[in-house]
Design a protein around this nucleic acid. Sequence first.
DNA 1: AGTCAGTTTAAACATGCGTTTAAAATACCG
DNA 2: CGGTATTTTAAACGCATGTTTAAACTGACT
Lengths: 207, 207
Amino acid sequence: MTTKNKILDAAEKLFADKGFNGTSLREITSQAEVNLAAVNYHFGSKKELIKAVMSRYMNELSPRLESALITICNEEKQPTLVEVFSAFVEPLLALNQFKENGTSNFLQLLGRGYTDSQGFLRWFLTTRYPVVIDSFITAVHKAYPELSTEEMFWRLHFTMGTIVFTMSSSDALMDIAKNDFNKNIDIAGVIKQVIPYVAAGVGAPIR
Amino acid sequence: MTTKNKILDAAEKLFADKGFNGTSLREITSQAEVNLAAVNYHFGSKKELIKAVMSRYMNELSPRLESALITICNEEKQPTLVEVFSAFVEPLLALNQFKENGTSNFLQLLGRGYTDSQGFLRWFLTTRYPVVIDSFITAVHKAYPELSTEEMFWRLHFTMGTIVFTMSSSDALMDIAKNDFNKNIDIAGVIKQVIPYVAAGVGAPIR
DNA sequence: AGTCAGTTTAAACATGCGTTTAAAATACCG
DNA sequence: CGGTATTTTAAACGCATGTTTAAACTGACT
């Protein structure tokens, strides 16, 4: 286990739990049991560390997601919106084999990135992984061609909000669900719950 | 204009823009043109200031919202989900008469409160204004009785996410919409866009 | 005019932050 | 083994934060 990876692992969990702004380098390095200065030595700055944490996941996720979406785009038949959103499931859950609690951690990080840090992570992701976004939009358009570009813009952002918010507070939600309904739901369960919701939202009738 | 109100006004705008953690007391007091120590003198602490900012809006909003929802609950006919969510529109837009940009500011604050500050604001709101939440749940149940308590729980949280995320980044979204579609959309426009989305999401078929 | 509670003020305080430094330790290689 | 490059370390730096202090000011009421 290298120092660099110890830092990445500790940072990932703390960032997911408490946000980027809410986590100090001192927390990270003491959890990782490395020296404080190691972060700046290995990554240069806290901002670069954040990028490194996100990149580790994106590089794992984006090829799978990309090919799943492109497959849908190239098929003959018109997909349903549920099918489009279901394309995310396998690539997302594959992160659990890549790393323990990978799916949950990644989605929480994504949520943090959109609300912490004044949108710099949004810029980072959209400029670094544009193909994923484009093929997703194409797939949605194929499933619901009547949706205008503008309405699609809004509905996809609503969807982003649904996912991101749900995931950044998924720990709290799963706790409540356990107390109130005596059901142990995991991240895969949450994902399966949310797909019909966002598919119906995006597919809502126009006007 | 009292010192207390000058602080509340400045804090409200800054909190909405940059989050609670992202705004310092020095920014607030210099924008409000009062002394730094005035915050602690009048409010006790930053945390109490946050509560005061939120309470000013909630006390304006909650009676209207409560009565609108209770009206729906007491009507003979079964409401549609769109009608239930539309009950929020008038009370929310009324905040614009209460204060310039009131609707937008309040919704952004709400968004911040759910992601900043480790959920203490969520606790504050749910314990201080339980009637609003209860009557909302009752109204949704009346509109879609087949939805189990558990599924309702998840879908309402998804909805919360949609609203909260959209609103906390609504400035950025409205900017993009202006650039890409040459359309000047305001907060009322966003609200009207989101209602069909969340209504369809909550109303999605079960299983 | 004098008193006194309420308010405002400048200054300081303690703490925590990200980052930098320079020396010590370790690893690598001819 | 010797020397060079890499990595780790403790300490400090400069800065920003929320909060506290104690003195100065304000405006009513007797």
